[in-house]
Write a protein that binds this DNA or RNA. Structure first.
Lengths: 258, 258
DNA sequence: AGCAAAAATCTCATTAGATGAGATTTCTGT
DNA sequence: ACAGAAATCTCATCTAATGAGATTTTTGCT
């Protein structure tokens, strides 16, 4: 009668439908995409609407709802990465015209948590909440290089064609070696995500020494010479190291309160 | 064996725990607050974590997770109220030193969707996502005054003591009459939410003529005379009317895309 | 490193609640 | 006003959710 996945997960499946390519859905489209029956889908949508997770747009369209807005407000208050990283990010942005990004890794996504723009002509836009591709760029590299071997191989397998296309190697093992060789120093990539832009990135680690986020500057190549690049790379690394230290300090025993 | 509420709603109950007063929860606290058994609670938390709705903070704390950040990004792209109202809000803020707010109504909350600050000394802070009280202030009044009778009485009943304390009347019917008498013109309130601040608000309606949001300026009373106040009130009303018109225009048939 | 306690997970019998086919009602757009 | 689309309801079937209690893993302290 059903797919073997329970109601708790199924209702969340509706929230997972929403992406940058699909900001709005009709009930019919959801039914087709998820394979739920009409009564079931409408039951779930009703619950989500009542709690503010979904909102109607026009007669038949559904978008995410106001509870999402409220929850992001709560996140901005509670997210240790953001609270501790925001000032460091601002300092980085002040060093040189650039876009400075604080990006966290979750699942298979790199998600911009905060950004600071200090260049008159930003070449790309990564506002808070926007995901970016895992295979490309200094940010991605900063995460992948520091993964434990098993996890790294997993990600290589998932993104093999793209990584090979970037010249990282011809086999899984070669790519892993290439990435592991990048562990020292900041990660620098040129034009992999946006033409004409250099990315300088350094990882931030959590208490278990796993990479969880990246501090990054994206800089127009024409504003750079080698010496400046080296100095900025050092600054990014220093900031990331400082953020790591802050995040891994022993917490006070009290949960985050307002 | 259980409370008679299904799994789909129960898992969402966890997300509802989070508020400005409670940004982080331990599993034990959730168990106590929700009355779920330990295995059940942990099962739900596992699902929510895997999808990014929750994230661990330290060893035992749980906060909202990165999927929330991503979803708010999507909302900022899809929310017609925000997309159409942002520019109007900016124009209002430019008229006079103030904090200008775009606030939507959902359930029992008034939620700030966008704000623009044009005063050097903002007296209160309502960043995007922060809820505010329903009973007090011009914003609340702008919504309540325009509700159909049944709905208005409902809200009066829920907030009776507070409304009576504000001098709106001594009975439900008196309060309802007072509110209905406020339908003409902009709503003006002095110091109900923040001392020394005047709120000027006008409702925004949806396609069914129901009030769904409010445009508001909050102004330091000392920067105001009667003539300026009257002019600003007119501007707020004009902007709200314009936003209403935009929102109630016939939509193109295509769902919102990126 | 060892240990006790707390936290997290597992097992499995019971049954609550989820499901969807199909009927019915409500809403929308012309 | 009307036809068709959208949304909701009914109810028999049976899937999956539940939680008591056992077990494993993790944490924090010494």
């Amino acid at each position: 009668m059903t797919t073997g996945t329970g109601s708790a997960e199924r209702i969340l499946g509706i929230l997972e439908l929403f992406s940058e390519d699909r900001l709005e859905w009709t009930a019919e489209e959801m039914i087709a995409a998820l394979g739920y029956s009409r009564p079931t889908l409408y039951r779930y949508v009703k619950s989500l609407k009542e709690l503010g997770f979904l909102a109607q747009n026009g007669s038949h369209g559904w978008t995410l709802g106001p509870r999402v807005v409220e929850m992001d407000f709560l996140m901005r208050k509670s997210d240790a990465l953001l609270c501790q990283g925001q000032g460091l990010l601002r300092d980085l942005a002040a060093l040189h015209p650039c876009t400075a990004l604080l990006v966290r890794w979750y699942g298979n996504k790199l998600l911009c948590v905060a950004s600071e723009v200090s260049t008159p002509n930003p070449r790309s836009s990564y506002p808070r909440g926007r995901p970016m591709p895992l295979a490309r760029g200094a940010i991605s590299r900063a995460i992948l290089a520091h993964l434990p071997k098993k996890q790294m191989l997993e990600k290589i397998v998932e993104n093999f064609d793209e990584m090979r296309g970037l010249g990282l190697g011809e086999t899984y093992e070669q790519i892993a070696d290439t990435l592991r060789g990048m562990r020292k120093g900041a990660l620098i990539a040129r034009g992999e995500v946006t033409d004409g832009v250099v990315g300088v990135a350094a990882p931030v680690f959590d208490a278990s020494r796993a990479p969880v986020a990246v501090l990054c500057m994206t800089i127009n190549r024409e504003t750079l010479d080698d010496l400046t690049l080296a100095r900025l790379a050092q600054s990014v690394q220093d900031a990331a190291r400082r953020l790591t230290e802050t995040l891994t300090e022993k917490r006070t025993d009290e949960p985050v309160a307002s």
